[in-house]
Simulated scan of single mutants.
Amino acid sequence: MGASGWDYYMPYQEDRYLAFVTLRQLVFEAGEFVWAVSGKNASDDPGRPTTEDELWSEEVVRLKGTHSILDMYKVLDDGEEPTYGYLPYAYETFEEYMALVKEHGNPEYGVVIPVGEAEAYAAAGDTKLTRDHVELLIPLAKFPGFGRFAVLHDDQGAPAELYFWGFSGD
């Protein structure tokens, strides 16, 4: 099937982890993920799991993922570096990636990384991102198995939403 892109908007709240956990729960309850056992969108499968423990108990799900935010397990705070020794966006080619894997080991997949001010400015020309900037942000999630999030602002410059996006699945 290959990795699939996903994206979600959540109302802004300071506690990004709570927003992340709430989003995961909403996606699970709505069945907005691929149920790898049947190969269907879970919302179309009456036999889909009723708990996340049930979902992840299936080996095929652990291998293929859900092609959704459910494949992510951790959201980092601003300035917090991933714990695997190198950034998922620090390479451009597969060869560079493999050199880093050889040097540092496999990266810690399933991590959602915030867009910092410098990265926001480089991608969108602004540090107060809005929905108008989303298309410019999407390329920042260029590697499967990692998610990104950005704070989006309203017309007055106040935080209004959290935007989560990435690629995951087999």
Rank of each mutant, 00 (worst) to 15 (best):
Arg62Lys: 15
Gly166Pro: 14
Met1Val: 06
Phe146Arg: 06
Ala99Lys: 07
Glu29Met: 06
Gly145Leu: 10
Tyr109Trp: 13
Trp165Asp: 03
Gly31Cys: 08
Val21Gln: 06
Ser38Asn: 05
Ser43Val: 09
Val115Phe: 11
Tyr8Arg: 12
Asp170Thr: 09
Asp15Ile: 03
Val61Pro: 05
Ile113Leu: 11
Thr22Asp: 06
Asn106Leu: 09
Glu117Gly: 11
Ile113Trp: 00
Gly2Cys: 10
Lys102Trp: 01
Gly79Tyr: 02
Lys128Tyr: 15
Glu103Val: 00
His133Glu: 03
Leu18His: 08
Phe164Lys: 09
Met72Glu: 00
Gly39Tyr: 09
Asn41Val: 14
Pro159Gln: 07
Tyr97Ile: 00
Tyr163Pro: 04
Tyr73Asp: 04
Gly105His: 11
Ser57Cys: 10
Val101Glu: 02
Ile113Asp: 02
Ala122Arg: 12
Tyr9Gln: 14
Gly110Pro: 15
Val75Gly: 04
Asp78Asn: 12
Ser43Gln: 12
Asp45Val: 08
Tyr17Trp: 05
Glu52Val: 14
Glu92Ser: 07
Lys102Asp: 10
Met98Arg: 03
Asp78Phe: 14
Ser4Cys: 08
Asn106Thr: 03
Trp165Met: 09
Leu18Ser: 14
Arg24Gly: 03
Arg131Phe: 15
Val27Trp: 09
Ser43Phe: 15
Tyr97His: 07
Gln156His: 10
Pro46Glu: 07
Gly79Thr: 00
Gly39Ile: 03
Thr51His: 07
Val134Lys: 14
Thr93Ala: 08
Val34Thr: 12
Asp155Asn: 12
Leu162Cys: 01
Pro159Arg: 12
Glu52Met: 13
Ser68Phe: 12
Gly125Trp: 11
Gly2Asn: 10
Leu55Asp: 02
Gly157Trp: 01
Asp45Ala: 08
